[in-house]
């Protein structure tokens, strides 16, 4: 693919491309909280130890 340039002829910043890439942002925006909050949370809940007061 040809290199895209901005008005002053310099190549477009990779940050601009990243911010324009809504699909990538979507994947990250789902993946990060899913991992940190949901999956870790499910793990925490299911690893709750049984009460030692009950035999």
């Amino acid at each position: 693919m040809a290199q895209e340039n901005d008005s002053s002829g310099e190549p477009i910043s990779k940050w601009e491309k990243f911010y324009d890439n809504i699909f990538l942002l979507f994947i990250l925006g789902m993946g990060i909280p899913f991992t940190l909050y949901t999956i870790w949370g499910v793990y925490e809940i299911f690893s709750t130890p049984l009460s030692p007061l009950v035999n």
Binding site: T48, P49, L50, S51, P52, L53, V54
Partner: peptide, 13 residues
């Protein structure tokens, strides 16, 4: 500090 306990067991305790 927290544990899993059946409600019936907690009731008995």
């Amino acid at each position: 500090e927290y544990y899993r306990i059946a409600p019936e067991d907690f009731d008995k305790l």
